[in-house]
Design a binder for these strands. Structure first.
Ligand SMILES: Nc1ccn([C@H]2C[C@H](O)[C@@H](COP(=O)(O)OP(=O)(O)OP(=O)(O)O)O2)c(=O)n1
Ligand SMILES: [Mg+2]
Length: 502
DNA sequence: GCGGATCAC
DNA sequence: TATGGTGATCCGC
């Protein structure tokens, strides 16, 4: 860390080894100067202070535990050897990650944007940036107006989720032909088990991956990067190695795997973010995955069993738990919005009511009810509070949700707010329970309607597969150069959720 | 079960 | 002028 008083939370990290139009310390300095004095900056400082205290507490714990170290050391080596003996090398996973996804979709419509610095988002927040902008230090989750200070010529494009969804659907279609059970975590990222595909083919993993990326490119006009390895985790880490528009194949060989991981910063592990990385470094000087193994005893002494098992297995490339992404049922549903600071309870109630209405609509769409109502409040100083109540019976209507949410709000009203949110958890399906089967038999099933063409779709309302197919078909013609349609846009953006008026 | 934190995208 | 939204998980009560 060099001269400038740079903060680990404030520094928007560049992605990987990109060439930089500016020096890293220069970038940090500009960001710092742009945010200094803001409420957000003060909030970050407080957070860093808390984390420093947490590290200090762990340091004390470490000195107190030092007597038991040598005994623990033996156990740890045994544990590691045992884990290693269980390594599975027989399956092959492919992780695919689209390059600068939202930005790349925008380039399809406006090819001239390919060569200039560009980001998707707004003045207050960017979702992503293209690779030209990244050389200036402009990255996702950075406010647009700060990005402009780093890169005065930056072009900022407002997001168009409809187009991203259409592009994602095309990609998914290709991927499913390699693994029908493919699980996608988002529109732009997916994990495939290609063991069976490889067994049926005579091609090498390299060739299959090249072919897959070629098919994705032809189907969507978008480039992607891919990683292949014998665990989903390794494949994912690999997908970043030769990004953008590249691929990396890690052979199923324990020595090669450990050699590969040795070079990887712990931050690359899915689940280790800025805070955990900082704690590991400050407390144990752990920076790479190899460091996790060499400090394994301390990690097991200092962290919970769940946490240390996760860290050690990850550092061996044997991380198991990884994106149930697609398959599992949702556990909660929520809506939240940021707005200009408000202080009156009545203003807060107005917002809260709208949020409840919106949540009730979303719940109805998937027929959920739930018995825990939570509200989330963020003060003008960025401090977040949540309050929850669990009810006897599940609720799902906006009136019922609002009744409890507003009670939570008035009981806990902070002096001011910049965000409010409502969440329902403890979900149960809200299938109509008070009618006998006969009613259903005679009732004409109402056809769902397509948010794009507004025609009714010839499918049962529960048949989401068929419905999505229809919507995807409707979306295809819009995805390229066609001017924005007027009506459907709002509806589908709402479907995608995120931002927008309530 | 509650509330704060952390994380991914 | 201005620092997002959704969903999940874990820890310590
Ligand atoms: N904090 C974030 C991170 C990402 N995204 C959105 C925009 C991205 O385009 C998309 C995919 O995220 P990635 O992390 O894969 O980033 P990109 O695909 O944009 O770039 P890369 O080429 O590094 O994968 O998710 C977002 O809205 N907010
Ligand atoms: Mg991507």
């Amino acid at each position: 860390m060099s001269g400038v008083n740079t903060t680990f939370l404030g520094g928007h990290a560049t992605k990987s080894g990109l060439p930089e139009a500016r020096d890293r310390t220069q970038i940090d300095k500009i960001i710092q100067e742009a945010s200094k004095g803001s409420k957000f900056y003060a909030f970050q400082q407080r957070r860093e202070q808390r984390i420093a205290e947490k590290v200090a507490a762990l340091q004390i714990k470490k000195t107190q535990l030092s007597t038991g170290y040598s005994k623990a050391e033996q156990e740890t080596r045994k544990w590691l050897a045992d884990a290693e003996s269980r390594r599975i090398l027989e399956r092959t996973y492919l992780h695919i990650d689209m390059d600068a996804f939202f930005a790349a979709v925008e380039v399809l419509r406006r090819p001239e944007l390919a060569t200039v610095p560009m980001a998707v988002g707004g003045e207050s927040m960017l979702s992503t940036s293209n690779y030209v902008a990244r050389t200036f230090g402009v990255v996702a989750a950075m406010p647009g107006y700060i990005a402009r200070k780093l890169c005065p010529h930056l072009i900022i494009i407002p997001p168009d989720y409809t187009a991203y969804r259409a592009a994602g659907a095309k990609v998914h279609e290709v991927l499913r032909s390699y693994d029908p059970n493919m699980s996608s975590f988002s529109l732009d990222e997916a994990s495939l088990d290609i063991t069976d595909y490889l067994a049926r083919s005579s091609a090498t993993p390299e060739e299959v991956t090249e072919e897959l990326r070629g098919r994705v490119l032809r189907a969507s006009n978008l480039t992607c990067s891919a990683g292949v390895g014998c665990s989903r985790q390794l494949a994912k880490i690999g997908s970043n190695v030769n990004k953008p528009n590249g691929q990396f194949i890690l052979p199923p060989d324990p020595e090669k795997i450990l050699e590969f991981l040795k070079k990887q910063p712990v931050k690359r592990i899915n689940g280790i973010g800025k805070v955990t990385a900082k704690i590991l470094e400050d407390l144990l000087k752990v920076v790479t995955c190899a460091d996790i193994i060499s400090q394994a005893t301390w990690i097991r002494l200092l962290f919970s069993e769940i946490q240390s098992e996760f860290l050690l297995l990850s550092a061996l490339g044997m991380g198991s738990a990884f994106g149930d992404g697609d398959g599992s049922e949702r556990k909660s549903m929520s809506v939240e919005r940021t707005f200009k600071k408000i202080d009156a309870l009545s203003d807060m109630q107005v917002v809260l009511k709208k949020l409840c209405k919106r949540l009730a609509e979303d719940l109805l769409e998937e027929e959920w009810a739930g018995k825990t109502v939570s509200i989330k409040m963020k003060t003008a100083a960025f401090d977040t509070l949540t309050r929850a109540v669990t009810l006897e019976n599940p609720v799902s209507t906006d009136e019922e949700i609002y009744k409890h949410a507003s009670k939570l709000l008035s009981k806990n009203k902070p002096p001011d707010l910049r965000l409010l949110g409502v969440r329902l958890s403890g979900l149960t399906t809200d299938a109509p329970r008070y009618r006998c089967l006969d009613d259903f038999a005679h009732e004409p099933v109402e056809r769902p309607s397509c948010p794009v063409c507004t025609q009714s779709i010839d499918a049962h309302p529960d048949d989401t597969l068929r419905i999505n197919e229809h919507i995807d078909k409707c979306l295809v013609p819009q995805s390229n150069l066609v001017p924005q349609s007027k009506k459907p846009r709002r509806t589908l953006d709402a479907f995608f959720n995120k931002s927008g008026p309530l």
